Simulated scan of single mutants.
Amino acid sequence: MTPIAASAETGQPLAADAPFFIVMNAGSGRQQADATRVVLERELGAARRRFELRVVDDPRRLREVARDAAAAARAQQGVLVGAGGDGTLCTVAHAALDANCPFAVLPRGTFNYFSRDHGIPADPEQSTRLLLDARAYPVQVGFVNGRMFLVNASLGLYPRLLEDREIYKRQFGRSRLVALWSALSTMLKPHRHLRLHIDHEGSTQELRSSTLFVGNNRLQMEQIGMPNEARALEQGLLVAIAPRPVGRLLHLWLSLHGAAGRLSDSEHVASFTFTHITVTHPSRKRRLIKIATDGEIAKLQMPLEFRVSEKPLLLLKPEPAVAEANRS
């Protein structure tokens, strides 16, 4: 049993007067930020708990603001809170991990895989009230090179899907339907297959695929129909998934299979679990390559090292039985 799994049943209580330092990405609009402030003042104010809301208007400053808030949380024995979607939460969580302070979540995204997987309610009032009596539990996070991810990391076609999705969102708004339509459109476009070398447990294998997807979220694994891989995450492992080289129509069929929760039934998908792998590209050994981590795109230099973090993130969430009942 891993150290995280061994201590996952008992959370750490917080001081009754621990302050909250909340970092919110205002990318979804000022109206949502103002509504969040009203809820915080009502729920935390009624409990006489001190909080500080830092709204980030420029996404380029999110990392800096998160680090400053994390330093304040550590100095005052408080909690760093991220308010936003999975990408925002990952950036703020990374600051909490570096500062060794507890982390909490106010979900404000479209899919909210991280918060849903840990049983944190999407309702603003409920997630805010949870801050007052939740314990801090250790949860697993992953890294690719120096970049952390809570939900997943990928290279190849998947980052392209995310880039196209952002274009569609700017044109048609943020919704799951828009995200689905964008994905279908991208899947029907021509795409190249990567030729990757993967060093895993002392051996090297060659993998040809349109994308390499590394998952760290039970809910997402279960939804695409890979329950065995979902259970592996609870054992301190990450999951690598790669579709075998196929044409565009079959690739689309695989995506629809995943959307229907039946991806594990397909013989056209390779998967394995690991704690650490190194990925190289024979023709791009030292070049930059696009990586998506929790919906955010970055360019990282080959080789890529995917690994489970040795240090867990301390997350405020419901007790395990309640969290499991809340997952959806």
Rank of each mutant, 00 (worst) to 15 (best):
R60N: 14
A26L: 05
R74C: 12
E222Y: 02
F51L: 05
N217I: 02
L249K: 07
I289F: 08
A8C: 07
K189Y: 09
H193L: 14
R67Q: 15
L161P: 01
L161G: 11
D164R: 15
L130V: 07
H200W: 12
V65N: 07
Q77I: 04
T36C: 13
L304Q: 02
S182V: 11
A136I: 06
F103Q: 01
T128I: 04
V55K: 00
N152V: 11
G109P: 07
R160K: 12
V79H: 04
H257E: 14
H193I: 04
E125N: 10
R248M: 06
A15L: 14
N326Q: 08
T36Q: 09
L162H: 01
V79W: 04
A95W: 05
S328Q: 12
H193F: 12
E125H: 05
P190D: 10
E43M: 09
V139A: 00
I198P: 03
V105S: 04
S328N: 10
P303S: 10
P282F: 07
A16C: 06
A15G: 09
N145G: 07
A122Q: 12
D68N: 11
S266R: 11
R147T: 11
V39I: 14
N100T: 05
G258H: 04
A33I: 01
T110Q: 09
A321W: 08
T2F: 11
A136H: 00
G27E: 10
Q126A: 15
L184C: 03
